[in-house]
Computed example of a mutant assay.
Amino acid sequence: MQQPASHIHPTAIVAAGAQIDPSATVGPYAIIGANVRIGARTSVGPHCVIEGHTTIGADNHIFQFASLGAAPQDKKYAGEPTRLEIGDRNTIREFCTFNTGTVQDQGVTRIGDDNWIMAYVHIAHDCVVGNQVILANNATLAGHVQVGDQVIIGGLTGVHQYSRIGAHAMAGFASHISQDVPPFMMVDGNPLAVRGLNLEGLRRRGFSAQRVAAIKQAYRLLYRQGLTLEAALSAMAELPQQHPEADGDIALLRDFIAASQRGIAR
Rank of each mutant, 00 (worst) to 15 (best):
Q3M: 14
I8T: 07
P10V: 10
V14H: 14
A15P: 08
A15C: 13
P22I: 08
A24V: 09
G27D: 11
P28N: 12
I31M: 10
I32T: 02
I32N: 11
N35K: 12
A40D: 08
T42Y: 04
S43R: 14
G45P: 12
H47C: 06
V49L: 13
V49A: 10
G52R: 07
D59C: 04
H61T: 13
F65R: 04
A66L: 06
L68E: 04
A70Q: 03
A70S: 13
A70F: 00
K76D: 01
Y77F: 13
G79V: 02
G79H: 09
T82M: 06
L84K: 03
E85N: 07
I86S: 10
R89M: 02
I92M: 13
F95K: 03
F98V: 00
T100Q: 04
G101N: 03
T102D: 00
T102Q: 00
Q104N: 12
T109I: 02
R110P: 02
I111P: 10
G112M: 08
G112H: 05
D113G: 02
N115V: 02
M118T: 04
M118K: 05
A119P: 03
A119S: 15
H122W: 00
H125V: 00
D126I: 00
C127V: 05
V129I: 14
G130W: 11
N131E: 01
Q132A: 09
Q132H: 15
A136K: 03
N137H: 10
L141M: 11
A142P: 01
G143P: 05
H144W: 01
V145Q: 04
Q150E: 06
V151S: 06
V151L: 05
I152Q: 11
T157N: 01
V159M: 06
S163Q: 07
M170Q: 08
M170L: 13
M170R: 08
A171K: 01
G172L: 05
A174F: 06
S175E: 01
S175N: 01
I177Y: 02
I177W: 01
S178K: 08
Q179V: 09
D180G: 06
D180M: 09
V181R: 05
P182L: 09
P182E: 07
F184L: 06
M185C: 14
P191W: 15
A193V: 13
V194M: 07
L197A: 03
L199Y: 01
E200I: 15
E200A: 08
F207A: 10
V212E: 14
L221H: 14
L222P: 05
L222V: 09
T228L: 09
E230T: 15
A231Y: 05
A232D: 10
A232M: 12
A235R: 15
M236L: 12
A237D: 12
P240N: 03
Q241C: 07
P244G: 12
P244R: 11
E245C: 06
D247E: 15
I250C: 11
L253P: 02
R254C: 11
R254K: 14
D255T: 13
D255N: 14
A258E: 14
A265F: 04
